[in-house]
Simulated scan of single mutants.
Amino acid sequence: MKPGDFLFSRRMRQNHALEHATVTILSRMVPDLRVSARATTDGFLMFGSDVDLALLRRAAEEALQRLQAGEAELAIHPNCGTNLAVGISLVTIGTMLGFASSRTRTRVTSTVLSSVAGLLAARPLGELVQKYVTTLPDLRGVRLTEIRRRKIFGFQVIEVRTAQE
């Protein structure tokens, strides 16, 4: 069992990896792309700019093939919310540790230094968390089943669905 399997299902982690790879490839096809996406156990949802569904399908199929061929680095994305969550956690811990000091001058200095250290460490640690906890680039047996546009709570959303063979 992998470390991430304790927190997230295998399917969720696989779809998160596919989401990242798809957004990376789609961003190369559409340089001014502005989207966000969220993995689900059935695939992923994409929010944002009006994406051409045929282009998205090409990007998703390429992403799936490349991940299945072993390009695991496509599963890691620099703008993933995991990086933000890790950064916020590190800054919070740093601030709490800084406030633990009994002297005011030391408290302020410790708080600032530990918070800055947390910010600097956020991206590299966030990418490690992505690699070992929140994504799984092993997509053997995964296939795309459907890509469709729909409304959820009045917002246009693109749903990319996957299945396990």
Rank of each mutant, 00 (worst) to 15 (best):
H77G: 07
F99P: 00
G141L: 12
G118C: 06
R103Q: 06
D138Q: 11
C80D: 06
Q130F: 13
A85T: 06
H77E: 01
R149W: 13
G98E: 02
S114V: 02
D138T: 07
V91D: 09
L144F: 02
G126E: 10
E146Y: 07
T134V: 11
T145N: 03
F155G: 00
Y132A: 11
L125D: 13
F99T: 02
G81V: 12
V142D: 01
R103F: 14
P78S: 11
G126P: 06
V129N: 06
Q130N: 08
D138M: 09
L136P: 01
E159I: 08
V129M: 10
V116C: 06
R107I: 02
L120W: 15
L136A: 08
L113S: 02
N79Y: 12
V157I: 12
L97D: 00
R123D: 11
G98H: 13
G94F: 13
A100N: 10
E127A: 09
I93S: 00
R149L: 11
T111M: 14
G118E: 09
A121V: 06
T106H: 06
G118D: 08
R161G: 04
G87E: 09
T82K: 01
R148C: 05
Q156V: 01
L113R: 08
E127K: 12
T135E: 00
E127W: 11
V160A: 07
L84M: 11
P137G: 12
P78I: 14
T92R: 09
L136Q: 03
I88K: 00
S102G: 02
L120A: 07
L113G: 02
H77V: 10
M96N: 03
Q156Y: 03
A121L: 15
L97Q: 12
F153N: 13
N79D: 03
G154V: 01
L128K: 08
S101W: 06
N83G: 03
G94K: 14
F99A: 10
